[in-house]
Design a protein around this nucleic acid. Structure first.
Length: 277
DNA sequence: CTTATGGCCTGTCAGC
DNA sequence: TGCTGACAGGCCATAA
């Protein structure tokens, strides 16, 4: 369940540990992901240097020499770990390690994804904005384009639940189930409320809490609820800050009312029926 | 344009 | 103890 804060934390760690390194070998051990990973992909990146690592929504954009960008999405259960010089080949998980990239300093990047919802795709720099995965994404929630006015405008005429709209990557990019629940709790808005019924004041709170919660989660290295691990294999620490997610039946930390669990669009939504209206 | 639904995929866990 | 079925959920395709 890597969402924006987890991917951003990963980006920062990998920027420190892997930028400037050259990929000296690459190997596919399990090509089946959301789409099959082609041998041409690994052939093309061998010999390339990692110049910069960017993030867009939940995608990691690894800029390589040769005007290539490696697009990585962690799906549900993906992880990209940076193994030290002392790794041994038998440490690799033959079932769930999909790709391994050996770097010129003797370290290795390993992509692991048990549920295979992830994605790895090589794109020419010039085609990045038109590529299917990135075209049509909404604004970054931590950027200028996302504010109360934008939320208010985009929710007019929408019958869908506000939580589903927050998770719609075409409206705003990078928010998933965990942070949508947390943002709406902080804003005092029930997840099932129709978008059209969000007031200007609520849009203001949603915008403000989206920014503060995501920023705070990035500062904590993201959230590990079940399986997420960063590039060092460490879990995120924001889980201790969660107010409602995963707390169905437990008392609200603000008022003591029992947290409710309701399924919206086949996704679990947690909220406090007293604090959220 | 919006909304609803199902499929992908497998580790984990509750319940029998 | 071992089996079964439900669940987790980001993203995409399809249909109405």
């Amino acid at each position: 369940m890597p969402e924006l804060p987890e991917v951003e934390s990963l980006r920062r760690l990998l920027t420190d540990s892997a930028c400037g390194r050259t990929i000296v070998a690459a190997r596919i051990s399990e090509p089946r992901l959301r789409r099959r990973v082609a041998q041409e992909l690994v052939d093309a990146i061998v010999g390339k240097t990692i110049h910069r690592i960017r993030r867009r929504a939940k995608y990691l954009l690894i800029d390589l020499s040769g005007n290539l960008t490696l697009l990585v999405h962690l799906g549900m259960s993906g992880s990209l770990t940076h193994r030290g010089e002392d790794f041994r080949d038998d440490e690799f998980d033959p079932v769930h390690d999909h790709l391994r990239f050996a770097l010129d300093d003797g370290t290795a990047l390993v992509y692991n994804d048990p549920r295979r919802f992830g994605l790895m795709k090589l794109v020419a720099c010039g085609e990045l904005e038109q590529t299917q995965e990135l075209a049509g994404l909404g604004p970054e929630p931590l950027g200028e384009g996302f504010d109360a006015e934008y939320i208010f405008k985009r929710t007019r005429g929408r019958k869908a639940a506000i939580k589903n709209l927050l998770m719609d990557q075409r409206i705003v990019a990078g928010i998933g189930n965990i942070y949508a629940c947390e943002i709406l709790f902080a804003a005092g808005v029930r997840p099932g409320r129709a978008g059209a019924r969000i007031t200007r004041a609520e849009a203001q709170r949603i915008a403000a809490f989206t920014k503060s919660i995501l920023a705070s989660a990035i500062g904590s290295g993201g959230t590990t609820f079940r399986s997420y691990r960063d590039s060092r294999g460490q879990p995120g620490r924001f889980v201790t800050s969660l107010q409602v997610y995963g707390r169905g039946g437990e008392p609200c930390l603000r008022c003591g009312t029992s947290i409710k669990l309701r399924v919206l669009g086949q996704r679990s939504s947690f909220y406090c029926p007293a604090c959220q209206r």
